[in-house]
Structure formats: C-alpha cells, structure tokens
C-alpha cells in the first residue's frame, strides 16, 4: 500500500463545492425573507386600502435612487470577478472599491429616509403610529422590519467584501483561487434581489 504522509489539514480546494455551499446558504436567506414576504402578502390582502395609503407616504425618489445604486454595485462586483479571472488586479480592486462605496451610500440614504419618518413620529410603537389604522401600523411595522433586516444584510455584505478585498491584496484570492470573491458576489446579488422586490412592494404600490 502506498505510504502517504498526510496531515489532517484541509488543504483541498473545491471551487464547485464552495460555490454550491454558498448557493445553499443563499437559499436559506431567500426563505428567511420569504417568510416576511408571506407576512406582507397576507396583510396586504387583508388591508388593501391602508397599504395603498401608507405606500403613498414613502419617498419614491429615494427608493429609486437606492435601487439604481444597488444595481450598479451589483454590476461592479460582477465585473470585479471578470477582472480577477483576467488577472487584472488593479481593475478588480477599483471595482470592489466602487461596490463598497455604493453600499455605504445606500446606507446613508437609508439613514436619512428612516430619519425623516422617525422625525414625523412614525416608528414602531410610537404614539403617532398607534393612532393610525391597523393596516397602516402593519405596513410601517413591515417597512421598518424588512428594510432594517435588508440594511443589516448590506452591512454584512460590505464586511464580507472587505474581507475578500484584503485577501486580494495579500494575493490569497487570485486568478486561480477566486471562489471567495465569487461567493461574496453571490451574496451581494442576493441582497440586490431582495431589494428588487422590496422597492415595488413598499414604494410603488400606490
């Protein structure tokens, strides 16, 4: 029998396996938001008028800008993968920097948007909100919860991308081994897809 000295270090690199793992994780995230979308659908069905009225109060402009921001950032991180595959480290870095900048811009917009609502006395459990109709209470509850959870995912996404970015600087992620970058990209696109649905459901159904 062949005598191989093996250590129990897991040096095997399985590109397809890692990617499959990331996809499976993305499925769980989709269903996590899925539960909220079911909740949204049921309450919208039960309170169509109130959801209609409340949605008109949200600022379509800010929502649209944030949509475009996320779409561009999704495109740039996808481009960074192409750049890395072509071993163009400089372009990879630039694209990732743009992605992170856009993500932070999104959060800043979100901050001002939420700030405006809160300054009008609309936040979960506020006296002003409690005086509104039940449908509106639910709408704003869902609005804060879902966009809040989404914002949390943006923060996690930026952290993820930042980690990958530092590994690219150290050449640990490179043209041969780039699955980590691909996975951070997949995660980021997931965040994008969730927003693609959040945007019309909260801002456009008027």
């Amino acid at each position: 029998m062949e005598k191989v000295t093996t250590t129990h270090e897991h040096d095997h690199y399985d590109h397809e396996g890692s990617k499959l793992g990331m996809w499976l994780f993305i499925f769980t995230e989709l269903l996590l938001f899925g539960g909220l979308f079911i909740t949204y659908a049921v309450y919208k069905y039960l309170n169509p008028e109130a959801f209609h009225m409340a949605a008109e109060e949200l600022n379509v402009g800010v929502g649209a800008i944030n949509t475009v921001i996320l779409l561009i950032s999704s495109a740039t991180i996808a481009m960074s993968i192409t750049a890395l595959q072509q071993n163009n480290i400089r372009l990879t870095k630039v694209m990732l920097e743009i992605t992170m900048m856009l993500a932070i811009t999104f959060l800043i917009n979100k901050y001002f948007e939420w700030g405006a609502k809160i300054s009008h006395g609309i936040y979960p459990g506020s006296d002003h909100l409690m005086e509104m109709s039940r449908g509106e209470i639910l709408f704003y509850g869902l609005y804060f919860f879902m966009t809040g959870l989404h914002a949390l995912h943006i923060i996690v996404g930026v952290a993820f991308i930042a980690v990958v970015y530092s590994k690219i600087l150290k050449r640990k992620v490179n043209a041969e081994r780039y699955v980590l970058l691909e996975n951070s990209g997949l995660y980021w696109h997931l965040v994008d897809i969730v927003w693609i649905f959040l945007f019309p459901l909260f801002y456009l159904i008027t």
Partner: peptide, 20 residues
Amino acid sequence: TTAGALILASLKSWLVLSYF
C-alpha cells in the same frame, strides 16, 4: 398594479440570477 410590479421585479431578478 401589484401584479405588474411583481412581474417586472421577477424579470429583473431573472436577469440578475442568470447573468450577474
């Protein structure tokens, strides 16, 4: 209105899924 918005959103997601 809702149906239309959802169809367009699905179309966008399909693009993101297939290409990005």
